[in-house]
Deep mutational scan, measured.
Amino acid sequence: NKFNKELQWATWEILNLPNLNEEQVKAFIDSLRDDPSQSANLLAEAKKLNDAQA
């Protein structure tokens, strides 16, 4: 389904953001699992944090 694909994509993207530490990655992945419908928003937040920590 749509959420499953978005969840998989967001998870992959977050795992590959180079500037997030392990705790941050875990927190984003946990949030994705808690509410897959928020995957686009969570991915945007993760990318923003990744850029800020570059």
Rank of each mutant, 00 (worst) to 15 (best):
17 L>K: 01
38 Q>R: 10
45 E>V: 09
44 A>V: 11
13 E>I: 08
26 K>Q: 10
40 A>G: 08
38 Q>K: 11
49 L>Q: 06
4 N>M: 08
12 W>S: 07
4 N>W: 15
7 L>F: 11
51 D>N: 12
16 N>P: 00
46 A>L: 02
2 K>Q: 15
42 L>S: 02
8 Q>G: 03
12 W>D: 15
27 A>M: 11
53 Q>M: 13
6 E>Y: 13
40 A>Q: 13
2 K>P: 13
30 D>F: 06
49 L>T: 09
52 A>L: 13
29 I>L: 13
26 K>W: 10
6 E>S: 04
26 K>H: 14
52 A>R: 10
34 D>I: 13
21 N>I: 06
43 L>F: 05
3 F>D: 15
31 S>E: 08
38 Q>W: 05
14 I>V: 06
22 E>P: 12
5 K>L: 02
52 A>Y: 09
48 K>T: 07
14 I>H: 01
14 I>W: 01
52 A>E: 13
14 I>M: 04
15 L>N: 09
26 K>Y: 07
2 K>D: 15
31 S>H: 11
18 P>Y: 08
50 N>T: 01
45 E>G: 05
27 A>R: 11
1 N>R: 03
38 Q>S: 11
2 K>S: 15
21 N>Y: 13
43 L>Y: 06
52 A>G: 09
28 F>V: 02
45 E>S: 08
32 L>Q: 01
34 D>T: 08
18 P>N: 09
51 D>R: 07
11 T>S: 05
18 P>M: 13
25 V>D: 00
41 N>W: 11
34 D>L: 10
43 L>T: 05
26 K>M: 08
42 L>P: 01
38 Q>P: 01
3 F>A: 15
39 S>F: 15
10 A>V: 12
30 D>Q: 10
2 K>H: 15
26 K>N: 13
20 L>M: 02
44 A>W: 07
54 A>I: 09
45 E>T: 08
41 N>F: 14
15 L>K: 12
12 W>F: 10
42 L>Y: 06
31 S>I: 07
5 K>H: 05
6 E>A: 05
54 A>N: 09
42 L>H: 04
31 S>N: 12
24 Q>T: 04
32 L>D: 00
45 E>F: 08
37 S>G: 07
20 L>E: 00
2 K>A: 15
8 Q>A: 14
2 K>V: 06
21 N>E: 07
46 A>D: 00
25 V>I: 09
28 F>Q: 00
34 D>H: 13
27 A>E: 11
21 N>V: 07
20 L>F: 01
13 E>K: 08
19 N>D: 05
50 N>P: 00
4 N>F: 14
54 A>L: 07
41 N>A: 10
2 K>M: 14
42 L>R: 06
17 L>V: 01
16 N>E: 07
34 D>N: 12
6 E>V: 06
7 L>A: 13
27 A>S: 14
12 W>M: 08
50 N>I: 01
12 W>T: 12
13 E>G: 07
7 L>K: 01
47 K>T: 07
36 P>W: 04
18 P>H: 12
35 D>V: 05
42 L>N: 02
11 T>V: 09
